[in-house]
């Protein structure tokens, strides 16, 4: 069943002025429950504008958005309730922390939903464990934490709202490799444990390739494709034509193929590459796809 569905949505900035810009152009998409979708596209491709439609921060200039089969802008009084179903974590979310303690900051979202204290407390401890925030840290001021810890607290603040869909915009931006890996694996864990839908917006194909079950590619406001990583990376050439870098490992395999070696065209992680090469080298023959 689809949890997010759009019907011909378009979004136009500054309509009627010389600065008119079509940021999202007639996008139709249906995202099923339980997917972990990697959203890619370069700056200005419309991917950030698109995701802001999914929780009603932006109203489409044309077209309709359905969340959990309910039309988003049909009844304005339902907006807040629907918004709670779709949690959105912005870029550099640590800059939204404001409470005295980590505990209170994570509580902000659940409190706004009108939950009772016992439920709020349960959810805070639950998400804190999931993102790796210790009991001791909960009592600290968020401003005392390290960059990576702050980021995890901010993400926990949205996760604690237990949205059906969690959208993260560039959650690893500006972090070092260790921080990046921590965030990626906590997203993967959250997805596996809760089974909820997750949308991960990223510039890094390598990151997306590591975790996504589906990939959504945006290009100049339009939906370029929405498919499984296998199918998307099969189109590596086209992706490079629209200015997106495919994972380094995929480029290596495409070049091997160009040299006349028969390799499968769906290699996009180091794990898979290792597996394919081992079977080829050990059998001394061609790999089975």
């Amino acid at each position: 069943m689809s949890v997010i569905k759009t019907e011909n949505i378009s979004y136009i900035y500054s309509d009627g002025t010389p600065f008119r810009k079509v940021a999202v152009d007639n996008v139709n998409i249906e995202i099923n429950e339980g997917e972990l979708v990697g959203v890619i596209g370069h700056t200005g491709s419309g991917k950030s504008t698109l995701i802001q439609h999914f929780n009603g921060l932006l109203k489409p200039s044309e077209g309709k958005v359905f969340i959990d089969s309910e039309e988003l802008w049909a009844d304005k009084s339902r907006l807040k309730a629907i918004r709670c179903k779709v949690g959105l974590v912005f870029q550099y979310p640590e800059y939204q922390l404001f409470e005295e303690t980590v505990y209170k900051d994570i509580a902000f979202g659940p409190k706004n939903m009108g939950l009772d204290d016992a439920e709020i407390d349960k959810r805070i401890r639950d998400t804190a464990r999931l993102v790796g925030i210790s009991e001791e840290m909960l009592g600290k001021s968020p401003f005392e934490l390290s960059g990576g810890q702050k980021r995890r607290v901010a993400i926990a603040g949205v996760m604690a709202m237990e949205p059906k869909v969690l959208i993260l915009d560039e959650p690893t931006a500006g972090l070092d490799p260790k921080g990046r890996n921590q965030i990626l694996s906590l997203i993967k864990e959250y997805h596996e444990e809760k089974g909820n839908t997750v949308l991960l917006v990223s510039h890094s194909m390598e990151d997306v390739a590591k975790v996504a079950t589906k990939i959504l590619v945006m290009n100049s406001g339009r939906l370029f494709c929405y498919d499984t990583p296998d199918e998307v990376f099969r189109r590596a050439k086209e992706l490079e034509e629209i200015g997106l870098a495919v994972p380094q490992i995929t480029r290596v395999f495409n070049r091997l193929k160009a040299e006349g070696i028969s390799v499968p065209d769906n290699v996009y992680t180091v794990d898979r590459a290792e597996e394919v090469l081992l079977s080829m080298l050990k059998q001394g023959g061609e790999a089975d796809d």
Partner: peptide, 16 residues
């Protein structure tokens, strides 16, 4: 611009 961003972020956390 930053005010805009923070407001959106808090709205996404249910702030009214």
């Amino acid at each position: 611009e930053e005010t805009d961003k923070i407001m959106s972020a808090q709205k996404a956390r249910g702030a009214d």
